[in-house]
């Protein structure tokens, strides 16, 4: 590790240039992380109080992220409208609907019976539900391509998927009365075994990544320059 001659806050280690813009957030993350880890093992009321307070701060950052995301969205669409980009009228639709919804919501509130709630129930909910329901068609077409019983693994995938689907609809019971029972058995045991193995792997992965964050080895959250 060596310091830079012109500025003491810049130094190099393992071929990587560090400065305070990098060091301070990493140190901050380590400090907060170590505190939240230690307080789990130290059941003292004062630590629990600080932990609760820090936990509450997360909500503020979440709100800041929401506002930041919305401003970024507005900026993106404003640029498209200003430069008369391709499909700019749709950007105008986004901007008008965003400001109208936000304006109405801030004036009327979010309670039931308000115009804002009507917009939520009759515009946002049906559009989102229909978008997700569209996935039924795309999943069906994807399964036609994916579910070719080319080998044993693909055949097992195909069979379990078909049995679970048939077991969940009345026609499955009409075809064979035991179909719902087999579908439930597959969901309760085969599915649980697979999910459990994945969960254990994911759990160990999360713990390893969290330890890397605490030691400042994992810095991808800082963006490209991290």
């Amino acid at each position: 590790m060596r310091s830079c001659r012109c500025c003491p806050v810049f130094f190099e280690t393992h071929g990587e240039t560090w400065n305070l813009k990098k060091i301070l957030p990493v140190a901050f993350a380590s400090l907060v992380g170590l505190f939240s880890l230690v307080q789990y093992f130290v059941p003292h009321p004062s630590l629990a109080g600080i932990f609760r307070e820090l936990n509450r701060w997360g909500v503020f950052i979440f709100a800041g992220a929401l506002v930041m995301g919305t401003i970024s969205l507005v900026r993106h669409h404003l640029q498209k409208v200003a430069s008369k980009d391709k499909n700019w009228p749709y950007s105008l639709v986004t901007l008008v609907s965003l400001f109208a919804t936000a304006g109405i919501g801030l004036v009327t509130g979010m309670e039931r019976g308000t115009l804002f709630n009507d917009i939520f129930v009759n515009v946002l909910m049906p559009t989102e539900a229909t978008m997700f329901s569209l996935l039924a068609f795309f999943i069906a077409s994807a399964s036609f391509r994916a579910f070719r019983a080319r080998n044993l693994e693909a055949t097992v995938l195909l069979l379990t998927a078909v049995i679970v689907m048939l077991g969940r609809v009345p026609i499955g019971r009409l075809l064979w009365s035991g179909m719902p029972g087999v579908a439930n058995w597959l969901l309760d045991y085969a599915n649980t075994a697979a999910k459990r193995a994945i969960m254990i792997g994911v759990g160990l992965g999360i713990a390893a990544t969290a330890i890397k964050v605490l030691f400042g080895k994992e810095r991808s959250y800082m963006g490209d320059d991290g």
Binding site: G64, I211, L214
Partner: peptide, 25 residues
């Protein structure tokens, strides 16, 4: 903006180590 992100990531990392090992492993 790295500071609030570092707070969230660091805090979640510290909380998750014991919780995830307990619940998911």
């Amino acid at each position: 903006a790295r500071f609030p992100l570092a707070f969230i990531v660091g805090f979640s990392a510290g909380v998750q180590i014991p919780q995830v090992i307990d619940a998911e492993v």
